[in-house]
């Protein structure tokens, strides 16, 4: 029997959050954490969590599993369970709505802030804008972000200043557009990032890199933004 300890909080009935213990019979199978949660939800239908694609591409089910952020649907028990125990908590640093569901507004706000869309002031051609495979390759490792918030909620700098520091996810997307050969707004984008918080609150802790379920590297992207800012200002 797997011991599962889950963070519970329902604002309608609970005055404070608490940890609830469950026992799950996995019959020795190496299930994904999400499968275990589905089994628990059958025991207790009031357990709340988000999920959608169940294959690691939609980014709904970011959660803290035995102390580390990740997606429950692509995290096998064998990767996280220690001493037959699994502790599930909501993503740290964001307000809890209920149980394992967090309020992600501030995370999305930081995403919107970096103008996450292509800006190009030249008239669009009748066909596609051409882009060399080499230029396209520069977007690899950037565009794949699924906005699961595992990185930003693992980042101490984001914990302390979620309203001012864009956070690793938003910065990865900021660089995705800076790096796009089709985008013409580099200067405007950079001028929005040159304050003491937006980019520079990154202290290179690299928790973001350690937890990203898609294997992306926001720290490297932040380094590239700094280089661009420096090149632009000197």
């Amino acid at each position: 029997m797997l011991q599962v300890s889950i963070y519970r909080y329902n604002p309608e009935t609970d005055t404070a959050p608490y940890m609830q213990e469950f026992q799950v019979d996995t019959q020795g199978r190496d299930l994904m954490v999400l499968n275990v949660m589905e089994m628990l939800k059958e025991q207790d239908s009031s357990l709340a969590y988000r999920r959608s694609c169940r294959e690691g591409v939609c980014g709904s089910d970011g959660m803290n599993m035995n102390g580390k952020n990740g997606l429950t649907c692509v995290t096998a028990l064998s990767e996280v369970v220690k001493d037959n125990k699994l502790v599930l908590r909501p993503l740290p640093g964001l307000p809890v709505v209920r149980d394992l569901v967090v309020d992600m507004s501030i995370f999305y706000k930081q995403y919107e802030r970096i103008q996450p869309y292509l800006l190009n002031d030249t008239p669009a051609p009748a066909i596609e804008r051409l882009q060399s495979p080499e230029d396209r390759d520069k977007l690899d490792g950037l565009y794949e972000c699924i906005l699961c918030a595992c990185c930003s909620t693992a980042c101490p700098s984001f914990w302390w200043n979620p309203d001012k520091f864009v956070g690793p996810s938003g910065l990865l997307q900021a660089y995705r557009f800076l790096a796009d050969s089709r985008d013409t707004a580099t200067k405007e984008r950079l001028s929005e990032l040159d304050d003491p918080f937006a980019v520079f609150r990154c202290r290179g802790i690299m928790n973001c890199v350690a937890v990203c379920p898609k294997g992306l590297n926001p720290t490297r992207a932040i380094g590239k933004i700094r280089e661009l800012l420096l090149a632009n200002a000197t």
């Binding site: 990032l193 040159d194 304050d195 003491p196 980019v199 520079f200 200002a233």
Partner: peptide, 11 residues
């Protein structure tokens, strides 16, 4: 903050 610019502070 020191210089009003994140970049100058950083440099």
């Amino acid at each position: 903050n020191f210089s009003r610019s994140g970049l100058s502070d950083w440099v």
